[in-house]
Design a protein around this nucleic acid. Structure first.
Lengths: 117, 117
DNA sequence: TGACTGCATTACTATATAGTGATATAGTTT
DNA sequence: AAACTATATCACTATATAGTAATGCAGTCA
């Protein structure tokens, strides 16, 4: 008997589910929309203006994120107001940002050291 | 003066950087490789056997994750041994899994209620 | 040296999707 | 009703990349 630890197996389906979650956050424009939304509720037009993206594009991203359960919407008259439905995405972003910050700092140190302090 | 909160702006570059980080985790096969690695150090051949993927494919994914600083490698003789270099990815995965679990549970409840308890 | 092995890389195909202009749809105003 | 507005959707193009077979290459062994 080796010391090999039997790992918990993920089905391909589960892996695809997790990956698809990350895929939502893997586009700069979607991150921009999410960050622009923040704690507020905003109409599509407002988001279009704030992000500078095309209306069709914003609508498509919103529809995608609605389907993923990351945003929610409320229709009122002609407008549709979107808001964040899953606050945990901000935690994910913060973790990534923190890690990126560390890496950059490390690189910075390394470069300083390399170039002779 | 409105109550609108001035949001911290991200540059397009920063957004792209964050997105690219998520993009690494947005592929089932990469998640599989990372999860297979776990705390161990494994050669490419071992990873190929464990994942069932093609050798070229595994190599490409590993090269990509090496570049992203998520794995590290050590060459010994003919073999190259890879290991996790950034443990925080597991925290990210756990957060996503937890959230997915919640969502599934909620949906399950909703379906039960809809179908008459 | 030559045969072999493990990994990386290249060239290619297939697929997914971001962005965009045009159009459809539904609610509003006149 | 007709005109207008906000959003969603469609059709399309361009681009990125996952997977794969073939090849390159460096280290090992006979």
């Amino acid at each position: 008997m080796t010391a090999k630890k039997k790992k918990h197996e993920f089905t391909d389906e589960a892996l695809e589910l997790i990956a698809s979650r990350f895929r939502v956050l893997a586009e700069p424009m979607r991150l921009k929309i999410l960050h622009t939304l923040g704690d507020d509720e905003m109409s599509v037009t407002e988001l279009v203006e704030a992000t500078g993206a095309g209306q069709a594009n914003v609508s498509k991203h919103l529809a995608m994120m609605l389907d993923a359960g990351i945003v929610a919407r409320r229709k009122e008259g002609l407008s549709t107001y979107y808001r964040i439905a899953d606050e945990t995405i901000f935690d994910l972003c913060e973790m990534v940002c923190a890690r990126l910050g560390e890496r950059l700092a490390t690189h910075h140190q390394a470069i300083k050291r390399f170039s002779g302090r």
